[in-house]
Amino acid sequence: MKRVLITGAAGFLGSHLCDRFIAEGFHVIGMDNLITGDLKNIEHLFKLEHFEFYHHDVTTFVYVPGELEYILHFASPASPIDYLKIPIQTLKVGALGTHNLLGLAKEKKARILIASTSEVYGDPLVHPQSEDYYGNVNTISPRGVYDEAKRFQESITMAYHRFHGLDTRIARIFNTYGPRMRLNDGRVIPAFMGQALRGEDLTVFGDGSQTRSFCYVDDQIEGIFRLLHADYHMPVNIGNPGEISIKDFAEEILKLTGTEQKIIYKPLPEDDPMQRRPDISRAKELLGWEPKVKRAEGMKKTWDYFKTLSKEELQKKEHRDFSKRNRK
């Protein structure tokens, strides 16, 4: 039985990856320090013989006994609320964490897939964004800690590929949504749906003309799985090219939820990208992949999931473990 290590296993994408690899007959080793992850996302796996969990911070030395065929590095704060609260930890997991896992992959002779992000493109001057675009990133802005962590992650991964001949993959992930997202993590979809559930007005930043492209989690996981098994080491965009303005999207949420709230507007955060849409030509050609789930279908599934949350979960604010120990 092939063994795979998935970091960030208790997070949104990491937990769905654990499910997929279990379903594909792998022995899955999940790893997470639980700063932003939640064990409830993977608690259904603990009873399985071929799943094990390591509570560990990948910015320190990573040891896993036995053979490993694959490593998927998904450990990183991914929402603005998180990486603005723990900027140093965000940079460390992109730099030290990636270095540790590349070293582990080298030792185990394992193939490693790195989870990068569309944020490497910054506030793009090219639209849609293809993998050949180098980006427009403000390195010293508050958002820069996440953007630059991911850009360095790509650089060191390619250095290991070129210098050590390591078998690497890089997935540039665009906005993804679905069940197990944290309701109050600051991203567009959980923010809107949380406000709708609480009977609050929906908050749009700026005039709402900025655009995003949303990919349902099942499609995202399929793209990542295919990329891992493809013979290609350069970055590949994995996302949905269906583009929509934030204002129009807020109106879609109001219609979906059947609520009577209105849309209110607040100032746009610093360096918030004005356009985001992936060019997925490379993924189509190399992986035979493109999204299948329509936004209306995916949003209904996500809304149904959020409606199952308890009143306590709905009302609570984010109180993650951002202690000094974890921020250093």
Rank of each mutant, 00 (worst) to 15 (best):
K2P: 15
K2C: 01
R3P: 04
R3W: 09
G11E: 08
G14N: 06
R20L: 06
F21C: 00
G30M: 07
G30F: 07
I42P: 07
H44D: 03
F46K: 12
K47N: 13
H50Q: 14
D57P: 11
D57E: 11
V58W: 06
T59L: 00
T60L: 05
V62K: 10
P65Y: 03
E69I: 03
F74N: 11
A75D: 10
P77A: 06
A78I: 10
P80F: 09
L84P: 01
I86W: 01
K92F: 02
A95Y: 13
G97C: 08
T98I: 10
L104Y: 06
L104E: 02
K109Y: 01
S116D: 05
T117F: 02
T117P: 00
Y121E: 05
G122R: 05
G122C: 11
P128T: 12
P128H: 09
Y133W: 02
V137Q: 01
R143H: 05
Y146S: 10
Y146F: 15
S155C: 11
M158T: 09
L166I: 12
I170W: 03
A171T: 10
R172D: 12
I173F: 04
I173K: 00
F174G: 00
N175P: 11
T176A: 12
Y177T: 03
P179T: 01
P179D: 02
R180V: 04
L183C: 09
D185Q: 13
D185E: 15
P190A: 07
A191R: 10
M193W: 01
G194M: 08
A196F: 07
R198E: 10
L202V: 04
L202M: 03
V204M: 01
G223Y: 09
L227R: 03
H229G: 05
H229D: 04
A230P: 03
Y232T: 05
I238P: 00
P241L: 09
S245D: 07
I253M: 14
K255N: 14
E260C: 04
Q261V: 06
Q261L: 01
K262N: 14
K262Y: 02
K262M: 05
I263E: 10
I263K: 11
P269C: 06
P269T: 06
E270V: 09
M274P: 00
M274K: 14
R277F: 02
D279N: 15
S281E: 09
K292I: 04
R295P: 07
M299H: 13
K301N: 12
Y305E: 08
K317I: 04
H319R: 08
D321K: 06
R327F: 02
R327Q: 14
R327P: 00
R327H: 04
K328W: 07
